[in-house]
Computed example of a mutant assay.
Amino acid sequence: MLQANAEEFCTECRKPVSYHLQKKTVTRCIHGKEHTFQLTEAVCDECGSEMNLPGLLDTNALETDEQYRSAEHILSVREIKTLMRLYNLGKAPLSLAMGFGEVTIARYLEGQIPSQEYSDRMRKALASPDFMKSLLEENRDKLKPAAWRKGMESVRQLEGIASLSPPLRQSIAEVLSRLGEVTPLLMQKLLYYIQGLSLALHDQPVFPEPCQAWIHGPVYPGVYQVFRDFSFNPIDDDRFAILRETENTLTEEQKALIHLVTDTFGLYGGKVLESVTHSEDPWITARSGCPADTPSSTELSQQDMKDWFLRLGTRYDLRSVEGLHQYIQDAAFCLFHPIQ
């Protein structure tokens, strides 16, 4: 690994010197098409000349490969490895399941760049267990029974994610991308606030799934099933490549709202937000007459959610980070410092 400020020999200074790393813009022609790359270069701290470091050419080759694939929407080696783990298939079985030659995936892992057609097929399998299921059925005779069963079992395990609507999957992906570490409890509360604020500010939901008034606050049952294995731990799993690869159905307005929620509510723990939702009318109304420790599948009314956030909007600026922070702080203060 290249380390800035280490010492290497400079051919201009003729002695070992310290250096720093920076990015340079390089334009190269690949297959008759010009591409611009941001590549790492090492610069001598004494004379300012570019230095040739051990391993730098390998770093540049990797940067060029990744940026070229990204520009051309070609699957990366990392994504192909994720596809293998996702469906629990080795190189040869995955090649055959995809309808490729038996050694195709092995060649891709060694650095050969897939054709656009083959890349698109693998990307679709990353995003859609149903598509992968159809490929496994189509190519069943080419696979050993054990490999086929492993692939189909993986498809079955992924069906819960695929059953979520595309805008809900995309919303979850945005949250994970924005925050990194998110527990299932926090995810549920963020989805609730995304939906509620959208109903009030945009007069429409972001996703169609209903929200239920569970003991621990508003919950989207399908999302609970997908993430239940993580319990109180941060969500992290190769299966969620499906979320990232979901075709984007969100508007820029909806993405901006999701970012607003993650930048405010996302800074608080799931238990804090659970307590806040327990003080809000939509959850209280849906739980009316239900003992505190009794499970319930009663749905929160979207009209109640809209009305609640519209009322909040008369006291707080719900379109601003400052306004939402103020609401959360006020709500949390009242919960933990009740008037005697």
Rank of each mutant, 00 (worst) to 15 (best):
T246N: 05
A332Q: 05
V261R: 03
R78F: 13
M84T: 01
M305E: 01
N60L: 06
D141K: 14
R178F: 02
L310I: 10
L158I: 03
H73Q: 13
P221S: 12
A97P: 08
Q254V: 06
D237F: 00
D141F: 04
E102N: 09
C13H: 07
P16S: 09
L75T: 04
E8Y: 15
V77F: 06
L257C: 03
L53G: 06
L135W: 00
N248W: 03
V26N: 04
A173F: 00
L168F: 10
D130V: 11
L135F: 02
D281N: 06
L267M: 15
Q157I: 02
N88L: 02
F207W: 08
D307N: 12
H259G: 07
Q225G: 14
H73T: 14
I194F: 04
Q204M: 13
Q326K: 14
G323H: 05
A42S: 10
R156Y: 11
F207R: 01
D304S: 15
V321W: 05
W283Y: 04
A4C: 02
S275K: 09
P218G: 09
V219Y: 01
L179F: 02
P54M: 07
P93Q: 09
D307V: 02
S163R: 12
F309T: 05
T25H: 10
G151C: 04
P210E: 14
V77C: 04
S115F: 09
S296W: 11
K142E: 10
I172R: 07
Q326F: 03
E247T: 13
A106W: 07
G99C: 08
H31Y: 12
R121V: 07
K144A: 11
R123T: 10
K133R: 12
L21S: 03
H278N: 11
